[in-house]
Amino acid sequence: MNAAYKPALHLYAVFTAIATFLLLVAGALVTSNEAGLAVPDWPLSYGSLFPPMVGGIFYEHGHRLVATFVGLLTVGLAVALLFVEPRRWVRRLGLVALAAVVAQGILGYLTVKFLLPPAVSVAHASLAQIFFCITVALAIFTGRWWQSEVPQVQDTGSPRLQTLALAAVAATFLQLVSGAAFRHNAFGIVPHLIGAAVVLLLIILAGRAMRIRFPDARLLRRSGAMLHALVGTQLLLGAAAWYSRVASRGMQQTPDSTIWLTVIHTVFGALVLAGTVVLALVAHRVVRHERDEKERGGELEFVGAPIGKGPGHLASSARLPLGSGKAQS
């Protein structure tokens, strides 16, 4: 274990990520209940910090309260990282999180000010996903596992697992943007359906690569299985949410089932995106490609903790011979 691991900081980062997930739930509830304009002023609600929490005001003001809490948590995290974190790139990521949460607040104001213009609403929803992924990444980077010596595996296949994982992150993010655009009436459903097919294909390819190339790498296998489960559930949720939405079209009051299905589908999308980010980070941390090793002289040297220069730079190392796709420890 590396001395840089700070349990309190890690717990704080994990708590921030969980609070951010709850913020996503609160935001999705605002959209599904069409409560985004239940409070016409900003940042106060009806000129007060505590307006009557009835109907749509409960969702909109509740969202603002949770957002304020997460904003304060993020300030605390960024400051804590500045003071106690030795890795410069992690400190910088903390500042990026802080910038993102400030930008998110400004976008929230613009949605109220300009009466939910689709471009701003979609930007607000998309930045929320990015911010959530940053908090998840910070929770991982401050964790014991990331800063410990971990077994390495060698990737001899093509495309690289890292490439597949990054493609899955990008495709899932775009899929969430298209979902937000559909939800905020900027686009129709077609781009979202195409996006679902692309994400599914990439997840299948990544899962297949992990199963064939790294049969003994338990962590990778688990990450792949988790991602498959998330995507499969998300597809079912998407179909259910769509059916429910079509069935309730024209109704004066949106049924609770439609509201909750769309909320769960939205936040599950965030979990899928976070899952792809986790996979990309795990792949980055434990998988080495044959080409990299040749460039480095044919020996593995990636078993230590990344300190000081960047997520790919490792302070300590153990020289291991090249393997043939099996886990090495």
């Binding site: 209940n33 069409e34 409560a35 304009l37 009835v54 109907g55 749509g56 004066q252 009051q253 949106t254």
Partner: peptide, 10 residues
């Protein structure tokens, strides 16, 4: 026309 406070009001 809707009331965003009372979602059923249309």
């Amino acid at each position: 026309v809707k009331c965003n406070i009372h979602g059923w009001m249309k």
